[in-house]
């Protein structure tokens, strides 16, 4: 076994892979937050709760309807996205014109309700969700053993993130979206249905969270509070990256996951707090965030 700085390569690369997977979830979640923030100007506090609902959706689909992982990867985000559309249409829309902090408080309330309901029903313990058959096992790369499912999560998340970036930055639909972010009134005057766009954007953002939830289900167990603490780290990631840039959110997410993984190898005591420490440093050096435009 190869040794690097007194640490076996299996331990080092294993933790790096775990870090990369966490980074993939950070990227998917902070991407959703950034997209929602761009259009609605709110921080979606319910994001962690909806990530959890995504994982539970996959669990219900399997255990109640016998629908497996692959269809769940599509159905769960759709269901949660629809739920998001309902939240936006019935509640968030009424807050237009008020201080943005009210949106934050409202979504925090929604998060408490959703998490409370699931905790009431399922307690705090985790429910198992098996890795799909086609992704079981793994391969030996010489310097480490690579489980197939983990490789899949990293690659698939990366593809989804890049596709989102492409749609927003390079297509006509994305151009409308960016224009509506800059100046909704003028875009409306051109005949674009901006309120519908806002609703769908919120739905899409939370669908990304749900997708991350489904991907996480076989790795971390399905727990009612799986998103509660996780989302706070994602907020720190968002502060570090700044929500102005789509690519910035993706890069920051993966980067911080990697740093967290490295910390787990070399100084495990700090692995819980390293992201927050980096946030503090970034606030001191570049308050607007690494990719932020305005302070």
């Amino acid at each position: 076994m190869i040794q690097i700085l007194g640490i076996s390569s299996q331990a080092l690369f294993g933790q790096l892979l775990l870090g990369l997977i966490n980074g993939a979830f950070y990227a998917l979640l902070s991407l959703g937050l950034a997209v929602i923030f761009g259009m609605l100007n709110i921080v979606n506090f319910a994001h962690g709760a909806l990530y959890m609902v995504g994982a539970f959706c996959a669990y219900f689909l399997l255990n109640w309807f016998g629908i497996g992982y692959w269809p769940a990867l599509l159905i769960a985000p759709l269901v949660v996205g629809l739920f998001g559309v309902i939240i936006e249409r019935t509640m968030l829309q009424r807050l237009a014109g008020l201080d943005h902090l009210y949106g934050l408080l409202l979504t925090f309330g929604v998060a408490l309700i959703v998490q409370g309901v699931f905790q009431y029903q399922y307690g705090s313990s985790g429910l198992p969700y098996e890795i799909p058959d086609s992704l079981k096992g793994g391969r030996n790369l010489g310097f480490m053993y690579l489980p197939n499912y983990r490789a899949w999560v990293v690659i698939f998340s990366l593809v989804v993130c890049l596709a989102t970036w492409y749609v927003i930055e390079k297509t006509k639909l994305g151009a409308y979206l960016r224009a509506a972010t800059e100046n909704p009134t003028i875009v409306r005057a051109f005949g674009v249905n901006v309120p519908l766009m806002i609703t769908l954007t919120y739905g899409f953002g939370v669908a990304l969270a749900a997708l991350a939830g489904v991907l996480a289900a076989p790795i971390n167990q399905v727990r009612p509070l799986m998103g509660a603490d996780f989302i706070i780290v994602v907020f720190a990631v968002v502060v570090i990256g700044g929500m102005g840039s789509i690519m910035g959110s993706i890069l920051t997410g993966f980067l911080l996951g990697l740093i967290e993984g490295l910390t787990k190898v070399f100084y495990p005591e700090a692995s819980n707090t390293v992201v927050f420490v980096i946030m503090a440093i970034v606030l001191l050096i570049k308050p607007a965030g690494l990719f932020g435009r305005t302070a």
């Binding site: 408080l105 409202l106 925090f108 309330g109 408490l112 309700i113 998490q115 409370g116 309901v117 905790q119």
Partner: peptide, 21 residues
């Protein structure tokens, strides 16, 4: 009643923000 407290708190949040600011 266990987690009912959390659910109630969430509901109060939503109601306060929507109609009782």
């Amino acid at each position: 009643y266990g987690q009912l407290v959390t659910i109630m708190q969430g509901l109060i949040f939503v109601v306060c923000v929507l109609v009782f600011r």
